[in-house]
Simulated assay, not measured.
Amino acid sequence: MKLSIETRNPSSGLKSDTKSEKFQTANLARCTYTLLMVLVFYNFQLPWIVVIGSVHLTFSIVWFLLIQFDILIEKNLWWSGYVPATFDLIWLTVLAYGTGNITSFFILGYLGSIALSSMSIDRNYGIYNAFLATVLFSTMGFFVYYDILPLINIMMTPVKPTLLSIFISSTLLGGSAFLVNQIVSKLFYSLTDVNEKLLAIAMTDPLTGISNRRSFFSNLEIEMARQHRSHSPYPIAFLLFDLDLFKTINDTYGHEIGDLVLVEFASVLKTSLRKQDFPSRWGGEEFLVLLPNTEIEGAIIVAEKIRTTFHSLTIPVKGIQIRCSTSVGISILKDQHTNPESVINLADEYLYEAKRNGRNQVYSEKNVTI
């Protein structure tokens, strides 16, 4: 059996890509909407609002670039959601002041942008949005009420607000910001949960519950990258198991019993390995195990433990007890520049020798040199 290792990782970039797409969608919406609003206020000759909008547009573009190059996401900054939410709400307050408070359709449209921009790494900015929106809008309302700011309205005839209208509009806006944020956040959580479940299905063998070949490739790439970064490169052991006479078991007792044997062997793997080890179903009755930072001596000990544990099991079949065994081939990846394909193929060759020499045994370079 020869194999070809694909140089791609089906899962390594999934969450990162999801975050990047989410952030960039929000930032693109922010940039586009702010540009349109700046043009609108420029047309109505309100220069101070245009200046504030231009500052917000500049910030939005800078934020867009920071997310584009993963500077904020990878560092997981706690303020990566609060800062854009704050800028958005300040700009929203200025929009409301110039367009008629929350009666303007501009406000309702921009609430969607707030919800998207506040969906940062943990998406817990709904309460913050509600509080800040209420404070900013009530403050702006009081400025107008006490004639600190002049009445400006490009949508309708300016009407001086009352204290009651300031309270109601600010409360409604804060509540709207919170509700929109919660709705969009729950939707995003649901989509993320579905994606993670689909990924788990794609990377797991449905019968045994351990990882499949596709998942093994992904973890092998991660482990090799970790090995390359290490100041003291460590060996990686590969243990290739094949259940002895498995076709005979299927032909004699049926595929249901064969499946039970596979499940039992996978259970032995799970209970015999360290947390950092990685077992996978390689295909059919073959299983491949990756042991990071393991020399040949240690790999042989692990393989013998798994072999003897599995062989000691008794499986009840139609009133009788059957025993099964497994053969093992071991190879070690020592050099960072060695192609792992050749190392795994070597484990396959050792596995063939174990079977040829009587099965139910471990075979490695130690057998060759003795």
Rank of each mutant, 00 (worst) to 15 (best):
H337D: 10
P47V: 09
E256G: 08
S170D: 07
S232Q: 09
D17V: 07
T308E: 10
W91A: 05
N360V: 11
W79R: 11
N129Y: 04
F310T: 00
F143I: 05
N129S: 13
T369M: 05
H228D: 12
N76K: 15
N360W: 14
L207Y: 00
G81N: 02
K19T: 13
T338V: 15
F44G: 03
A225V: 11
K334G: 05
L3D: 01
Y110E: 09
E365P: 06
T308N: 07
I154F: 05
P340E: 10
N357I: 12
I52G: 01
Y145S: 07
L65E: 14
G358P: 07
V368C: 13
P206I: 02
S54G: 05
L220P: 00
I107S: 03
R356N: 07
L172V: 03
D70A: 12
H56T: 05
L65D: 10
K318I: 08
Y97F: 11
V180Q: 08
C31T: 15
I107W: 00
F287L: 00
A237L: 04
V343M: 03
N27C: 15
T86M: 06
V194G: 09
Q276R: 08
D244I: 01
V263H: 05
I300H: 01
E285K: 00
S267N: 15
H56P: 05
Y352V: 03
F59Y: 10
A225H: 13
N76Q: 15
A130L: 07
L260K: 13
G298N: 02
Y42V: 08
S170M: 03
T134A: 10
A96P: 04
F217D: 04
S280I: 01
I67E: 11
L46Y: 12
S117V: 15
F41C: 02
N250C: 13
Y363L: 04
I67P: 02
E221S: 15
S176F: 11
N124C: 11
Y33A: 15
I127A: 15
M37R: 02
Q182C: 07
F44T: 14
T25C: 05
Y125E: 09
L346A: 15
L66V: 14
V55E: 01
R30P: 00
I222R: 12
I154E: 07
I249P: 06
